[in-house]
Nucleic acid binder design. Sequence first.
DNA 1: GGGGCACCACATT
DNA 2: TTCCAAATGTGGTGCCCC
Length: 668
Amino acid sequence: MSSAAGAPSDGGGDRPWQSYHTAYTNGKAGMEGVDKEKVQKVIYEMSKGSKYFENEQKKEAITKQKIEHLRAQCAKLNDNDISHFQKKILELEASRDLSKIWLHTDMDAFYAAVEILENPSLKGKPLAVGSMSMIATASYEARKFGVRAAMPGFIGCKLCPDLVFVRPNFERYTHYSELARKVFQRYDPNFFATSLDEAYLNITEVCIERGITGEEVASELRGAIHQETGLTCSVGVAPNRMIAKVCSDINKPNGQFILPNERDAVTTFVSTLPIRKIGGIGKVTEQMLHQVLGITTCQQMLQKAAFLCALFSEGSTDFFLSVGLGLGGTETPEHRLRKSMSCERTFSATNDYSLQFEKLDNLAENLADDLQKECLKGRTLTLKLKTAAFEVRTRAATAQSYISSKEDILICAKKLLKAELPLSLRLMGLRMSHLCGEKDDPTIPTQKTLDRFFRLSDNNSNVNRTNGASSNDASGGDDCNIGATTKDECLIHDAVTDISSDQHTFFSNDENIFVPEERSSVNYDNEVVSSNLLTCDDLGGTKLDGNTSNSKVTQSEKFDDLSHFTSCKASASSSKPNQQFWVDGYICSLCGFELPPCFEEERQEHSDFHLAELLQQEEALDSSGHLTKERLAERQSTTPTPKKKLKSSKEGKHIPIDSFFLKHNKKL
DNA sequence: GGGGCACCACATT
DNA sequence: TTCCAAATGTGGTGCCCC
């Protein structure tokens, strides 16, 4: 396989900056003639040693691992593995459609151009729209210095000391964007915009009706845009959208490039085209294809088709081969509904809980406002966190019903956040998905698994999920809506209630430790408890991606005084099993089960555990962590489930309580 | 084994 | 001196459930 792996050296040595790949070291319109090496060195020097830089290196290392993995896979391939590609290519080739003419238009340095238009004194100056932390757009004057979009402002300043900064003004950009769109409408009423400054137009009809060429439409459209907005744009015309987009970049700024609707023209065009120019191929994919298969141009995709088919999924392979053939979308895509709505904020890193919750409150408010503006509600809330070390985490919970109010969002979001603390954070975000319009009639999703559980466990059970929610919701919000926020939680919550007919029962399974309502009434310092008890990191660290995964921890919720139950999912292969043992032992004792001796040791070891103290304060447990006699008697009198001895198949080994519960339950 | 879901990485502007 | 965004979509993966 060595022939396929044209593994390039990745720099290093006495020129470390050469291997520091950033988004801005790639070619971008207006950056020809820039001393790339100098720019790269400046960026490297300014980034070196920062948290951001360290995180980038971490990410690079993960990419490298993936590359190694793919190389190893590649080396194992036999002749049979790599013989199934020609049919695929023929199929794709058969789908080629040269009957449509697509035009892609892209405003030149849009934000910067609008600012200059509004304030002509900026003309000719190197301009950056953005802030010291991030540049959204750089004018062409600034690009000559290597300054570009997505670059932090302070690096821009270093590259170009005279760089002028302007704060973005989206209302302005929207206004100009609308002017441009009115022009697009004339050429294709079904045009679709991909951002404020870019759009695709199917100009097939216009060309036929008016008997003009794509080139003529392009010139005319650019003229009209300039006339209507005072701004310039660049245009690409090609038989499909993928190529049209590449074409619009060729003669930027204020230019156009037309690729005729001929197969040869297309294949010639893509033959030397770097894969990075293709939309959808970013930094990581580019590196992977290059370092595993030596692919740098689109045509090489076809040369390495056999390997691509053998190494990647069908979807990915189809995409890669289409790139090689110069195929792309030719039909106007159906209007797609919004899938999610989100907002996020970066701030200076903080580990101050109150500040973090304050930020969360603001985010919830923003998101609720945005949702309500569009009359949308959603079911899945995703919390995004970026730690001070730039590590990004997302945590999601799905509510039983559709929500959009700030209060509902916040209850859910708080639970997700609490489960992650303590953390030093530099960014938080909230995203709502599983959307539906308010006018729609959102069917409450059925819990098939839950139904099944009920059928299996207790036909007489008449559990009311929502009414089962805690009544001590301090927020006063309608906790019923999101009492159980995930399917698992609904299942477990109902299972708990079902098994015991007693909300004081604890339930756990291999990966879930759930603590229902009773905990919610404990007046403890929730922040400290929830963070001391079983954080994701405590239980094995962050889940790694894909095949490299060596530790598994998933989590959903933990102790939360606002909910009627809480939960924590932890992997059985916890790196700190003691804590899980302890918790399970604790659950055992609360349920009135006899504990295997190993739990006693665990408890001794963790006698200083904060929660134990709190429980003692509550007089639920005695000094050894067992239920007090009074509480035990009370529990036994109200719990119909017979007390069982928890057997240990192997001395000192942890037995998941859930297997016990589940077995027990199924027998009923 | 397939569908649904959650999580995450990647991509684009 | 210090400083690296926001919004959104897609696809892969792994898990659970049927």
